[in-house]
Nucleic acid binder design. Structure first.
Length: 302
DNA sequence: CCCCAGGGCCATA
DNA sequence: TATGGCCATGGG
C-alpha cells in the first residue's frame, strides 16, 4: 500500500518519451530483472541493504516512482532516484544531438521517429560486465535465457503481489562457483571462467565502480577494463556507455552496430572500422547516443 | 549441412 | 602484431 510518503517524483527532461523507453525495455526479449505491465515499469532495487520494489509510471512532466513494499526508509530514496535517473538516462539534454542528426543526410529522420528515446543503462557495474560476457557472440534470445538461469539460481528475490522480483546475484556468491557449475547451465567454459573471475575481483574489492569513475579520462577507463580477462574493446565500450554514462563510446566490432550501419549506407556487407568512424565523426561527444539510436533501427517495434 | 548471433582468448608463426 | 581456430546454443 502506497502512501504519499512512499512516492518519489522525478522531473523528466525536455526531450523525453516514456513510451519509447518503456518499449525499448519491452522490445521482445525476456529480461528477468524488471517487469512491465501496461504503462508501469517495476524494478526491484537494493538500497542501503534493504530490498524494495519500485513502480515507475508517467505523470505529466514527471515520473512517479512508488516504493511498493515499504521496506526502504524514506531517507534513502535519493539513492533510488539516482539509480532510476541513470537507468533511464534522464541526465542529458538531447537537443544538441538532435540538431546534429537533423544536419545529417542519412540520419535526419531519427529525431522524429525515435523522439525521446534515452540511453537505457545498466547502472550496476558488476551486472553490466557479466551481461556483456554472457552476450558475447551469441544471439540475444539465448543470452537472456542464460542470464535468467544465472539470476534465478544464484540471485535473491522478493515476493510482492504473489510475483517474484529478482536481484542480480552478488559477486560474493558467483565468486564461489566453479566453471563446471556454469558449464552445466550451458555457459561456455570460457564464459564461466570470465564471470567467476570478474566476481572474484569485485568480491575482493579489486574492482569497483567508484574507482573507475574517478579515473581522469575515457582511455584510462578502457585500459583498466580491458585488463580484465574476458573484457575486450567491445565490452569495455559497452560498459562505459551503459554503466558509466560516458558519452563518447562506440561498440566497435558489434555485429548489431555493423548491420545497422550496413543497412543505413546500403553497403550489402559489413562496414570496416574506418567506415564506422566516418559515420560517427560529426557526432563527437554523442557517439554513445548515435550508437544506441543505430541499435534502435534493428528493432521493428512501433 | 551451412552460417551467424550486440566477442575475446589463445596458439601459432 | 597478425591471423585463425575455438567456443555454446538456436534460428534461418
Amino acid at each position: 500500500m502506497s502512501t504519499e510518503n512512499d512516492t518519489i517524483y522525478i522531473s523528466t527532461p525536455k526531450i523525453f518519451s516514456f513510451a519509447e523507453c518503456r518499449n525499448f525495455l519491452d522490445r521482445g526479449y525476456d529480461d528477468c530483472l524488471f517487469s512491465i505491465e501496461d504503462a508501469t515499469i517495476r524494478k526491484p532495487l537494493r538500497i542501503n541493504g534493504e530490498k524494495g520494489l519500485f513502480a515507475i509510471s508517467q505523470q505529466e512532466t514527471h515520473l512517479k516512482v512508488e516504493e511498493c513494499t515499504g521496506a526502504i526508509p524514506k531517507n534513502h530514496f535519493s539513492e533510488a532516484k539516482q539509480y532510476i535517473v541513470d537507468w533511464l538516462g534522464l541526465e542529458r539534454d538531447l537537443q544538441p544531438f538532435y540538431e546534429l542528426l537533423e544536419q545529417h543526410d542519412e540520419l535526419a529522420w531519427m529525431p522524429d521517429r525515435y523522439h525521446g528515446l534515452r540511453l537505457i543503462g545498466i547502472p550496476d557495474l558488476f551486472e553490466a560486465l557479466c551481461w556483456c560476457v554472457i552476450g558475447q557472440q551469441i544471439n540475444l534470445t539465448f543470452a537472456y535465457k542464460l542470464k535468467r538461469r544465472l539470476v534465478e539460481k544464484f540471485g535473491t528475490f522478493i515476493t510482492y503481489d504473489s510475483q517474484r522480483h529478482y536481484f542480480f546475484p552478488e559477486p560474493e556468491v558467483l565468486a564461489q562457483l566453479t566453471a563446471d557449475e556454469l558449464r552445466e547451465m550451458q555457459f561456455s567454459r570460457r564464459k564461466g571462467e570470465y564471470i567467476i573471475g570478474i566476481a572474484q575481483q569485485f568480491a575482493e574489492g579489486a574492482l569497483e565502480k567508484s574507482s573507475l569513475t574517478s579515473l581522469p579520462d575515457r582511455q584510462q577507463m578502457l585500459d583498466r577494463l580491458t585488463k580484465i580477462r574476458g573484457v575486450g574493446e567491445w565490452t569495455a565500450n559497452y560498459v562505459l556507455m551503459k554503466s558509466l554514462q560516458q558519452p563518447n563510446c562506440i561498440t566497435y566490432g558489434d555485429t548489431g552496430l555493423q548491420s545497422a550501419v550496413s543497412e543505413l549506407l546500403g553497403l550489402n556487407r559489413k562496414p570496416n572500422r574506418e567506415e564506422v568512424e566516418e559515420l560517427f565523426t560529426p557526432f563527437a561527444g554523442w557517439e554513445s547516443y548515435l550508437n544506441i539510436y543505430l541499435w534502435r533501427t534493428l528493432s521493428s517495434y512501433r
